[in-house]
Write a protein that binds this DNA or RNA. Structure first.
Lengths: 342, 342
DNA sequence: CAAATTAATGTAAGCGCTTACACTGATTTT
DNA sequence: AAAATCAGTGTAAGCGCTTACATTAATTTG
């Protein structure tokens, strides 16, 4: 219960009858110390319940063993899952994770970067590549290695993620293959969100290749909630001619759409097909189960950790690691109705 | 692009023509510095792109403005949501969040405590109160203020959370009020998880009060997956007499149960009622929608941040803050069938 | 108006640690 | 056997910051 003064290196050194340098070496490079001494030191460490002070260590060694992550929000299964794996992997390397959230705002992301930089993070995990050049420049100036995750970025920088565009195109092709010609899309908000933008691009390009121009492919952008998905779906269904397949930018929107369909008395996939993206838990639980794209966020989190650690220790690294995705065909995609509503 | 040497307090002081002390004061206690000087200093800060070094600051001030959280996993909506709110609230107070996960293991939690202590966190968020006394003692010795969240603990310590036991009892009473007498429960794993244990206790005690003894209330503990919920539900349905209502320790288990019910050709709630706990997104999406207990994790996260900050600054604090929960009646609870299966 | 008080800033001593360098004694090389 | 090398340890100089105390100038007080 008594609040002991925290023991310092000095205390340990005195207790073990050695210099502080030797204690430090025992902790950081045990091979440099002869076994007998080391043992004596370790006993003192144990006895005093010594744990090194982070501040002192950071100051002296210019390293923090801390990695930062700035994500839009943890309250979104895809980030939570990826982050969890990332953290576990880091932990295995003895690194600690500092978390901040940007709420999808580049300005807030920048602020958090400064916080992280001030904290002396050895490396930084960011989401995607859509950010002001000034933010990137800031990190470069500071010499902080960083990584864009969740998608594959542009010309330079390091990335580990998914080819959202190709995946969306692949899914669209499956939809087209079922015979659908009247497609529509409920996209996530694409501004400053390259995942959402890429997915939209993917759908558009595949449609284009099938001779369906952008003018024939209504797209509504919707925020990340069931309600927004439902609302957008309602709008699309009010159009004439009515789309026979609605591709959604993520599973949450798709589930919202699905609920709205039920509400409108439309059968899925009898009257209209719906697809999602991400394959979060939800996707397998709704009825019918969602046809979607599986995006293995946990594998990505791990790969990101490995990559960042290499980057931090100046080991050679591939510039981008693509984590493969996979279309999961379940119940919400079928052929278009024989007599679509004009 | 060039990797500039990070500017130090000294650089700023020189640029502004003042002492380092004055610069430090500008940053930490601006009132102590006359406006003109302050302005000059701030300009220098701006011009050099100075950000204070965390290590130096921590070392000199014996404070880190860092708060740790050790949670079982972020990959669980209830923790992710709470943690997100916690982090946002902390951020408003200028604190940064260090995250570690225990994977539900007390040993691993203890390890992470030591990591956090080494990092000099000013305070620590833990989950629940089920942990070895030695772990608690460790934090006390170190003088690290800490908080149990997500449920209300025992004799001493600070808590912000839910009365899981009372909430479970309340839900059980609603089930009983529908006329059910043959209850069963699929609980979460209760070992070292007081939330799961409390929920089980709540159900048991309410049943007891209604004259249903523990021997008449089959309970299966299941891990946190759909499959485990489904499996447990299958086992319960094979019993004779068959339960008419299955109370689940969380929504994930309940959804698993629901799926299994469909698979078995049982109507919900016609043949059997099912209830969940937590009211995560899932609950409103399945068909029929889940009757469950709403547990406002975001409010809890915020309350936890406020409480911990008070604790850290030695302000007076209530020992426990209870966040109210609420039964949400939706589609999966109905009266028992007229002719239950013996 | 001298003395006392106050306001603004400077001086300098660490905070706990790492690490370059120095030192010692033992081992290897020539 | 002297010289060179090396392993094991100690000495001590910071790392960048905060803050107690000292100093100076401005203001108030008796």
């Amino acid at each position: 219960m008594s609040e002991l003064a925290k023991p310092t290196l000095d205390d340990v050194a005195r207790a073990a009858g050695v210099s502080t340098a030797t204690v430090s070496r025992c902790l950081n490079a045990p091979d440099l110390v002869i076994a007998a001494t080391r043992e004596r030191v370790m006993q003192a460490v144990e006895a005093l319940g010594y744990t090194p002070d982070f501040g002192g260590r950071a100051l002296a060694s210019r390293r923090t063993n801390t990695v930062g992550a700035i994500i839009p929000t943890m309250d979104n299964a895809i980030f939570a899952r990826g982050l969890q794996s990332f953290q576990e992997a880091l932990s295995r390397f003895g690194k600690t994770l500092l978390v901040a959230s940007s709420g999808y705002s580049p300005a807030r992301e920048r602020e958090q970067m400064e916080v992280m930089a001030g904290r002396g993070v050895d490396g930084l995990l960011l989401i995607g590549s859509a950010r002001p050049e000034a933010s990137v420049e800031f990190l470069r100036r500071r010499g902080i290695p960083f990584l864009g995750a969740w998608n594959l970025g542009g010309e330079d920088g390091y990335f580990v993620g998914f080819d959202n565009r190709a995946a969306a195109a692949g899914l669209t092709e499956k939809v087209l293959a079922k015979g659908h010609r009247r497609l529509a899309m409920i996209a996530g908000i694409t501004e400053m969100n390259d995942r959402a933008a890429d997915r939209m691009e993917g759908v558009r390009s595949a449609a284009e290749r099938a001779g369906i121009g952008a003018d024939q492919l209504p797209v509504i952008e919707a925020a990340y909630t069931f309600d927004d998905g439902a609302r957008a779906f309602g709008e699309l269904m009010a159009r004439s001619p009515r789309p026979t397949a609605v591709l959604c930018g993520n599973d949450v929107l798709a589930v919202g759409a699905l609920q709205k369909a039920r509400e409108l008395g439309l059968r899925v996939p009898g009257d209209v097909s719906i697809t999602g993206f991400d394959d979060i838990d939800l996707a397998g639980v709704v009825d019918p189960k969602l046809t979607t794209v599986r995006v293995p966020h946990n594998r990505m989190g791990e790969a990101a950790a490995e990559m960042l650690i290499k980057l931090m220790s100046k080991q050679p690294v591939e510039r981008r690691i693509e984590i493969p995705t996979e279309v999961v065909e379940r119940g919400t995609l079928g052929p278009p109705p024989a007599d679509p509503v004009a």
